[in-house]
Nucleic acid binder design. Structure first.
Length: 799
RNA sequence: GGGCGGAUGGCGGAAUUGGCAUACGCGGCAGCCUUAGGAGCUGCUGGGGAAACCCUCGGAGGUUCAAAUCCUCUUCCGCCCACCA
């Protein structure tokens, strides 16, 4: 007979809701804040959600049972483009569509039996939430951290909006993959670069984050030390600053290259004989996509400007070129080229017959090479040559000496460069937080007064899907008096990037009803920081970096006292089917709802944890889910045959299991924890369980299969929820075996085993091993050289 | 090109961190039970071999009494970043 999962799950979900079993309240108990990355309400949950939220849920329930006061909230990241696309398609409104999706999704989440405190639910599209986005924006504006700038922005012609650098993937829009164009617009930026040192430095505090996330953030921030070197133009007082991380190669700089967009270019080429040709070249490059420009196998194109610069260390005249491989966005938009020691420069120099000079000699090669002998640039370590007074120094040492010397001479300046750019948050979109700014002819850019917040998003903007922001077409929204002079003025019609919304929601969860501030300072002091954060690796850079930035900003406002929002981070792996990521386009989706209908949520939870460790990819297997269901049925049948008193052997097995399973829960090794539970169940089938052993099994299984265990727990006569039960503790004395099995090896190969008392002396053990019948035949003709004894484990006889 | 992570039976995956490779499950095989259910229970199940034994953790070397685990070289796969000066 199969256990009646449908009735059981409905029954307990209802009871949990009625009793508010997962209500998080400030108390004397130690707190534990367990958070998963909240979903975008697309309407349906997918296996990725199921996996993410099951991991969090098991961890939360485990912490409850360990006596923690747990905060485990859920909400919806509800602003964003899909709602607008759906509204256009269905001739509906984004708000209506989104709220319907939220309702559907909540139903599905509830069917999974997740232990959320639903009283804390929030949606970022509610004005009670986004009001505080606007408040935060104004605070940043006051401090100069939100600013307006003219900028060449990434423009997606399909979505008709700008994109952050971070949202451009392989030169396409991150959402629709349409090729991104460049367009100059007035935009709002957040000055995240102001926090770059702290964002980098504080990564050291994150001892419990995955190494690779730390590495990705470090690379994204991209700190690099080097020297800014000043190349004076020949016959001019103009200077080209150049950034390099390799000042040790300065004596080998044989030409200078400017990015085509470099501000000096126009002036440099004016009146030169090939001016027209150069202009055409620049035109051509600017039309090229960044993909083509970035492809390393593509020939590096360039053109001589006709001007020369002076290498400040040796006063040589070297030509100034323009080339597509130099980027305006990085460094100073100009480089010094050292073809012998930089592969890109090498290719370019060979292509255009530019001079080369070796300045770093290979350590392993005594013969000095000539540049024409080179097949590629030498980028490794070496000894300085052709470098004036620095000849003979190891280049690492010369790097520092040359930098210091140049700084003293005034020809260069030691500098640090960063890859991190300011964060563009303006979106020419409707379904987002309105930016609380008013433009007045008289007063200019005027912030909305705090008292006038929220600037509400009008719910009935026209949706045609054509051109520009629908907000701009709502006259009642756009036209407003200037807060300062009361003259007619216009509102900003751009909205905020949705990453803004998700950069502080974890703080809002501490006090979601708070009416006077984004979050209650006392509540946040109790609950924050988040003890365990769980989500997908795809957010390793953006969301986590922005959240860290906001946290530091709140600290600067004096609202919180810590630097980092997420103490521990777990990034779960993707769910695959037939070796590929589950996705609609591949048509390999397994719908969680159909699995729940067929086997119940407990089986789904059990399987998804058992199939793989949380961090690795998980291959979906329809037969595996049957196995999980079979296991629960096997546990179900135990209640029919309970004994009066359990066998001592089973008690030992139980305590071994408690130790293993507890350790595995601590380390998020749910797959082996479940294996441990299965072993315990196998032992129960062998020896027969009593009520006490069965109870302990249920407690340990309950975070994984909560409805199922509540039902059996109640069946054992318990009036209270199993969540209130204490997590079992093992008795170490029961783990010690009087007689242990020792492995006997001869020359490292297993030749037998021997059962001995645990306290046997080493000599006696050696003797017993040498006299073992199975071992003797391996020893007969050889002399024993050495015997290695690993206490309690094995004996290795070397002959 | 750079960074990170992988590779273990027919499959998903274990291995106390250098100490019995393949726990647990799936699949397969056999038996039992049967009011024949796609149920349940009990065994067996890495490869070769009649056996004694031998071989096996992507491949090749090395360190060690002992290697899936440490070192060197190498092949393949995944993710992220990328003319970053």
């Amino acid at each position: 007979m199969l256990y009646p999962f449908k009735e059981i799950e409905e029954k307990w979900q209802k009871l949990w809701q009625e009793k508010k079993s997962f209500k998080a309240e400030v108390s004397d108990r130690p707190k534990f804040y367990c958070l998963e990355m909240f979903p975008y309400p697309s309407g349906k949950i997918h296996m990725g959600h199921v996996r993410n939220y099951t991991i969090s849920d098991v961890h939360s329930r485990y912490k409850w049972m360990q006596g923690f006061q747990v905060l485990h909230p859920m909400g919806f990241d509800a602003f964003g483009q899909p709602a607008e696309n759906a509204a256009i398609k269905n001739k509906s409104k984004p708000g209506l569509w989104t709220r319907k999706c939220i309702d559907w999704m909540k139903e599905e989440l509830k069917k999974m039996g997740f232990s959320y405190d639903w009283d804390r639910e929030l949606s970022t599209c509610d004005s009670s939430y986004y009001k505080w986005n606007q408040w935060i924006f104004l605070k940043m504006f006051e401090r100069g951290l939100a600013y307006r700038g003219k900028s060449n922005v990434n423009w997606c012609p399909s979505c008709e909006t700008t994109l952050a650098n971070e949202e451009v993937i392989d030169e396409g829009c991150w959402r629709c993959h349409e090729k991104v164009q460049q367009k100059e617009l007035e935009q709002w930026f957040l000055k995240i670069t102001e926090y770059k040192e702290r964002l980098l430095e504080d990564l050291k505090q994150l001892a419990h984050w995955p190494q690779r996330v730390i590495a990705m953030q470090t690379n994204w921030i991209g700190k690099s030390q080097g020297v800014e070197i000043y190349f004076r133009l020949k016959d001019s007082d103009k200077v080209i600053p150049v950034f390099t991380t390799r000042p040790d190669t300065i004596f080998g700089a044989t030409y200078v290259v400017l990015a085509p967009e470099h501000p000096l270019v126009k002036e440099l080429i004016r009146g030169k004989p090939r001016e027209k040709e150069i202009r055409e070249f620049i035109e051509k490059v600017s039309r090229e996509s960044k993909i083509a420009r970035a492809a390393s196998d593509v020939k590096k194109e360039g053109i001589f400007t006709g001007s020369y610069a002076i290498n400040p260390v040796n006063n040589e005249s070297i030509p100034v070129w323009i080339a597509d491989y130099v980027l305006m966005e990085y460094g100073t938009g100009a480089i010094m080229a050292v073809p012998t020691h930089d592969q890109r420069d090498f290719i370019f120099a060979r292509e255009h017959n530019l001079p080369m000079r070796i300045v770093i000699g290979r350590i392993d090669n005594s013969r000095t090479q000539e540049p024409q002998e080179l097949n590629e640039a030498y980028e490794g370590e070496g000894i300085q040559v052709n470098s004036g007074q620095f000849d003979g120094l190891p280049n690492q040492e010369a790097k520092i000496k040359i930098a210091q010397w140049m700084e003293k001479e005034g020809t260069g300046k030691i500098q640090t460069h960063w890859r991190l750019r300011d964060w563009l948050i303006s979106r020419q979109r409707y379904w987002g937080t309105p930016i609380p700014i008013i433009y007045c002819r008289q007063c200019g850019v005027v912030p909305v007064a705090y008292g006038d917040l929220p600037v509400k998003l009008p719910e009935d903007a026209p949706f045609t899907g054509e051109g520009g922001s629908p907000l701009g077409k709502v006259k009642e929204f756009v036209n407003t008096p200037c807060p300062k002079c009361k003259a007619p003025a216009r509102r900003e019609t751009d909205t905020m990037a949705t990453f803004f919304d998700s950069s502080w929601y974890f703080l809002r969860f501490c006090s979601p009803q708070s009416k006077d501030s984004p979050f209650d300072i006392g509540e946040a002091k109790y609950w924050m920081p988040v003890d365990q954060y769980i989500g997908g690796i795809e957010h390793a850079i953006l969301h986590l970096l922005y959240s860290r930035f906001f946290t530091k900003f709140f600290k600067d406002l004096g609202m919180i006292g810590f630097d980092e929002p997420f103490t521990r981070l777990l990034t779960q792996g993707m769910v695959l089917k037939d070796g590929e990521v589950m996705s609609k386009s591949r048509g390999n989706i397994v719908d969680p709802d159909s699995i729940i209908k067929q086997y119940g949520a407990d089986t789904l939870r059990l399987f998804i944890l058992f199939a793989a460790p949380p961090e690795t990819e998980l291959e979906w297997d329809d037969r595996g889910i049957e196995g999980a269901f079979k296991f629960l049925n096997r546990v179900w049948r135990i209640q029919e045959n309970l004994k009066e008193k359990a066998d001592p052997q089973l008690i030992k097995a139980l305590h071994r299991a408690i130790k293993k399973i507890t350790e595995d829960f601590e380390g998020f090794k749910f797959n082996t924890a479940i294996a441990g539970l299965m072993e315990l169940v196998n032992a129960i089938y062998q020896f027969g369980a009593d009520k006490a052993v069965f109870s302990q099994l249920l407690i340990m299984l309950s975070p994984i299969a909560p409805h199922f265990c509540e039902e059996l727990w109640q069946g054992l006569g318990n009036a209270q929820s199993i969540l209130k039960a204490n997590w079992p503790k093992y008795d170490p004395s029961l783990l010690v075996e009087e007689n242990i099995t020792i492995v006997i090896q001869v020359n490292g190969k297993v030749r037998g085993t021997i059962a001995v008392n645990k306290d046997i002396s080493e000599d006696k053990l050696k003797e017993a091993c040498l006299n073992d019948e199975a071992v003797k035949k391996w020893l007969k003709d050889s002399a024993v050289k050495k015997i290695v004894v690993v206490p309690g484990k094995l004996v290795n006889i070397v002959v």
